[in-house]
Amino acid sequence: MPDTSIQGDSFPAHVIWDKSETVKIRVKFPSALEVKEVFNVPPGGAITLPDGTAELAGFIMNGYVGLVLRSKRLEDTLVRERVTFEIEYLGGSSSENYEREISLFRPMLELLDVPPEVRVRSTLASRFAKLDEKIRIRNTGEGTAIIQVELQSKDEFEKLTAVEFDDFRKRFIDDVEMKLRAISAEDPSRADLIVKFLSLLKTPMVFNEEGKAEIKSVFEDLVNALQNDEKFLEKFASSLATSYLRNMQILTEINSFTEYLNSIGEGRVILLNSTDVIRAKKQAGVMNLKIRITDLAYNNYPAVELPPITVRWAGSGDLPIHMLFDWRKRTKLVAGAKNE
């Protein structure tokens, strides 16, 4: 059994014993865990006893049993739990106990400070506007938080993709589409997966529960297909790499690296829409933001609605989404300090 897992995710375990022995196995675990599936037992061979213990017997091939356990999402961001495997030897009426421990972890976003009022101003030195005070958020948990920032108030502001990337994105996607469609013509069994992948690539990511389920399904199918077919893996990876190289310019290279750095918040935060910018329609207004969160196991976390922020906007520069936030660990932020 592994010793770490993301909360809300499944993890495996197995027991191997001498094939000449007939055994009954009891798996004891805390309420934070459940047994999801058991391998190599006949129907009725795996049951849950009234005290929650899983009892396994009557193995199809003697000497092995496999299990898949799943954890719940817990209050604490890091919990250590114990699982006990009790092997009862039916021939000699003896038994042995084996204990294994697992750390269950998850991310947690903590809203430290949301300024009620901010000023955004354009400067000659930069193509982007700057903010005098930032929203302070930290990932105080243990796992990676993948977040997407949504703009709720559309009357005074709008959210767009930075123009620097638009051209590259279009050409890159056109190129990838051509190559992947050629793969799908060659191997029609991949056509459905390729169509779904291209559709995700071409449309803005919707990060609600339904959108996440679609992303999870497509990427899990993709990983399986890549794992099961070496030729497909090579062709797929090469399509992406060559499309990038064909369309890359020095400008893209430098800018993409900057954006890459901007998309990573300190303390394991990945900002999905880091290339988005906010543009003002009016010189002042109230900005309402919502943060959608997930983790590497696609778990659903409640969206964080930020308190309204009054914004005064001087000039016409766009404000990149990543500039709204300060992820750093320090406890005190000096108002007006430049964090760029």
Binding site: F165, R169, F219, L240, A241, F257, S263, L272, S274, T275
Partner: peptide, 16 residues
């Protein structure tokens, strides 16, 4: 290079 949904465009450039 990783192929994940959070490897946002231009994802092949700099992998997470």
């Amino acid at each position: 290079r990783g192929i994940s949904y959070y490897e946002t465009i231009p994802f092949p450039t700099w992998p997470k």
